[in-house]
Amino acid sequence: MSFFDIFQFDFFVRAFEAGLLLSIIAPLIGMFLVVRRYSLFADALSHVSLLGVALALMLKIPVLLGTLFTALLAAFGIERLRMGGRVFGEAVIALFLSSSLALSVVLLGLGGNVNANLLSYLFGSLTTVTVLDVVLLLLLFIGVSFFLLFFYRELFLFSLDEDLAAVSGVRTRLINGIFVALAAVCVAAVLQIVGALLVGALLVVPVLAAMQWRMSFRRTLFLAIFFSFLSVNIGFFAAYFFDIASGGTIVICTVLFFLGSFFAHRRI
């Protein structure tokens, strides 16, 4: 079978389209999570999305609806608790992460679907990407791009210092609310492709790799997209040709980019 023959399979074309969109969206969101020292936020949301999977399977509704609902609810819950200041930011994330994972395992167990469905949502699968997933990712891509084009300065300032942003006229709550909602939708949308355990890595590791090159904010962002794009493509093809897990392969690629950048920069 030649390299291009794999595009005759509908499921691969869908996965490829979703992967391309995802490789751009993930670092755009991840960049602002990393610089705000909020990298584990995506991990917490992905674990909460697993709860959405469990609920959707139990209630027999589309999985995407379940993951979107729980991810959005958790995102705003985490922010509410964090801003309240009564619980530390990392502790809030740990609370949501472990409690939602525990709840989803129990619910899936009660429904008798543990072995059948949990693994594909934990580690991702190319074959589960639907047309609806691709459409949702396309809408998300448009939403994230427009949000950045309109509010880049606000997001940058907010990442630098929240007080500084507020005194510069930035409506910090609104901007943070939109950003958190986009992050939640992003995690829920890519859960099936990369898997709940690996979503966080895809958002964060390409950004960390790009940051090793010590460039400007804009260039770091573009380099992170480049690393992410290459990782997703290499991961997809490697997963298909060598019959290995797509999510894991993509994340291993991002880690290799990180290690390469880390050591290359040390040499420079």
Binding site: R37, Y152, R153, F156, T220
Partner: peptide
Amino acid sequence: VFRNDVNFPATVWEIVESGHLDARFGEW
């Protein structure tokens, strides 16, 4: 703000530029 993380990926130009409050659509 002076003691911010040394790894924050921004240049002096970018930080000073963020003080320009009436940036246009896509000006970044």
